[in-house]
């Protein structure tokens, strides 16, 4: 992927998360559009690109609070990388598989978040958080995953078509 598209997608994901996601909140739970974009990116561009996308977008998210710098960078980077690894084993065009992958990625990222934050002494209540945050968020993110995946896939196809046109140009 070209750098301008990579940067534009990261900025767009951040802005969507900051501006649009709060309006999509259900029972105060926001969909994690940055994580879902990272997942789609990993599925479409492979593990290294997925990891890079997750690292940069997570770091930007970390900068907004300015504390625990790196927690979102690490969770998103790992999620993006693993999505890229899973890409070879998944039939991505199935709606159910995309929903399940979205939900599983959300659970994985939240559990990793809890593990890292727990190590810093941040007050967490694992059982209550599982019921109040992790599982409902996984359901919501799972349902949103096909939409985000298709949007990123559209960008990917447009980019591929553009590259082919440039290559065939005399």
């Amino acid at each position: 992927m070209r750098a301008p598209i990579f940067i534009a997608m990261i900025v767009l994901a951040q802005v969507m998360q900051g501006v649009v996601a709060p309006h999509l909140a259900v029972a105060r739970l926001k969909p994690d559009l940055v994580l879902l974009t990272t997942l789609a990116y990993g599925l479409l561009y492979g593990p290294a690109a997925g990891g890079r996308f997750g690292l940069v977008s997570g770091l930007l998210q970390d900068l907004l609070l300015g504390r625990y710098l790196g927690v979102f960078a690490l969770t998103r980077m790992t999620a993006g990388y693993l999505a890229g690894v899973a890409e070879r084993r998944l039939y991505r065009e199935s709606l159910l598989i995309l929903i399940a992958t979205g939900a599983a990625t959300s659970i994985f990222a939240d559990l990793l978040f809890m593990l890292l934050m727990g190590a810093t002494g941040y007050p967490l209540d694992p059982l209550a958080d599982m019921g109040r945050v992790i599982l409902p968020a996984a359901l919501y993110n799972g349902l949103m995953a096909p939409l985000i995946y298709r949007a990123v896939r559209r960008i990917r196809r447009w980019e591929l078509a553009r590259t082919r046109t440039e290559e065939t140009r005399p």
Partner: peptide, 16 residues
Amino acid sequence: LVLSIVVLMSLTARER
């Protein structure tokens, strides 16, 4: 990279 991020996290866990 992972180790650096973990170190960064622990350094910035307190209010600065």
